[in-house]
Design a protein around this nucleic acid. Structure first.
Lengths: 240, 240
DNA sequence: GTTTGTTGTGACGGATTTATGACGAACTGG
DNA sequence: CCAGTTCGTCATAAATCCGTCACAACAAAC
């Protein structure tokens, strides 16, 4: 299913607010709600991890300074986990000292907002992040045009029937279905599906594309995987 | 050949260093190179303009104080030119007074670094800029009069329908749509679409213009590409 | 209406890019 | 240790694109 956009970009978006001050959490939740989003909040990093494990949010608003595990630590930790390594993070910070800013950006935060900030600025940043991340709505299962990918059982169903493929093909398809319509070159696919600093020929991508297509062929779904000559590949089902 | 995997954000980025002091230029180039980027340098504003005209860098590191045209002047000038109006600029300055800071930002610099600065800070700022621009670039969708160029999906749509064209035609159209209304001669098109240090006949441009027009013809959009006799070509949709 | 210079157009051969089948190595679970 | 998979690489075929040319069409100048 696709995320449903109603009144604006990122409408209905699942935003996780992580802060140890209740007043700030409330303020943020209120602001986000007014913008048509669906905020949740977590008091501290521990709760945040639970909340994220419970359901992967579309974006995380993360306070820099928190007792125990700091926002910075949490961000780094999220970046290391496979499940959350590309989870968009916006860092909230009151500090202005030079090295903090540097650390915040290096830690993997996608953006940062310095307190005090206006509600409008907050919304703008969140929407900007949401706009550039894919609009797939994960509920443990991605379902697109007769293709179902169940990440729990690691099973692919085409028109209800199970489709057999290797682990790499599965991850490739998973990545594609999480980024519908976006074009990727071979290097990007290697980074995202095989992993960074894995040295493999670029043409290997072609071969696995081929194997994935072959697996989808009997169900006439291979046409969803399109070649972009001179660039790479793209997953694009009809009317998307 | 092995795939080149980037070791960090903005790896291999084309960074132009503009400073009048050779020692500073060397230091900056060294630092940037160690971060996996590809720095060039220019001694003063004149050289910088040439270097930029030669190839548009990903980001410019600009010294505030230079004899002749100052960094501030250069930044303003770059902002006026169409080709460079959204070129990311990081200003290097020894001044710390408040109004200078404001001026630096007002002139169009995207960020500034106060000397003395640590290599780490420099790298972090450059990466932050690169991340920001590449992010906005990717979500960039140019939409003009029934013609849509979606750089995210690497696809051209005319009246909602996909239009097929070769890689070169795509790049050509992309360049045109990023510079609507501006006329270019064949040499300029070759430099910007084919790249500098590539030798091909000038008339090759004509052929690709022809192919691009042919691709747009079925949608009656080929008239947007106009010939300027004795000069070159221009992309100009009605009422723009 | 020529002349002269510029641009449009179709064709072609070579070059580049992608698809595909095959193969050996590595791994898995008996 | 064996059968069965999966993986990455390669060689080759197939598809597509590119740059150049020759000539037609056109525009401006005389």
């Amino acid at each position: 299913m696709y995320a449903t956009h109603h009144t604006g970009p990122g409408s209905n978006a699942d935003v996780l607010v992580v802060d140890d001050e209740p007043a700030i959490r409330d303020m943020l939740e209120y602001t986000l709600q007014r913008a048509g989003m669906s905020p949740r909040s977590a008091n501290g990093a521990e709760e945040a991890l639970n909340a994220i494990a419970d359901k992967r949010p579309d974006v995380v608003l993360l306070d820099w300074m928190m007792p125990g595990i700091s926002g910075l630590d949490l961000a780094r930790r999220l970046r290391r986990e496979d499940f959350t390594k590309d989870l968009p993070i916006i860092m909230l910070t009151a500090r202005t000292a030079e090295d903090d800013r540097v650390h915040g950006l290096d830690s993997g935060a996608d953006d940062y907002i310095v307190k005090p900030f206006s509600p409008r600025e907050l919304i703008a940043r969140v929407r900007a992040i949401l706009r550039r991340t894919s609009a797939t709505d994960e509920s443990g299962q991605i379902n697109v045009e007769g293709l179902t990918l169940d990440s729990e059982s690691h099973q692919v169903l085409a028109t209800g029937k199970p489709v057999h493929m290797g682990p790499t093909e599965y991850r490739l398809l998973e990545f594609f279905m999480q980024h519908i319509g976006k074009a990727y070159n071979r290097t990007q696919l290697l980074d995202n599906v095989w992993g960074t600093n894995v040295y493999v020929e670029e043409r290997t991508v072609d071969v696995h594309i081929r194997r994935l297509r072959k697996a989808l062929q009997p169900h006439d779904l291979d046409k969803y995987i399109q070649t972009i000559r001179g660039h790479g590949y793209r997953f694009l089902p009809p009317r998307s």
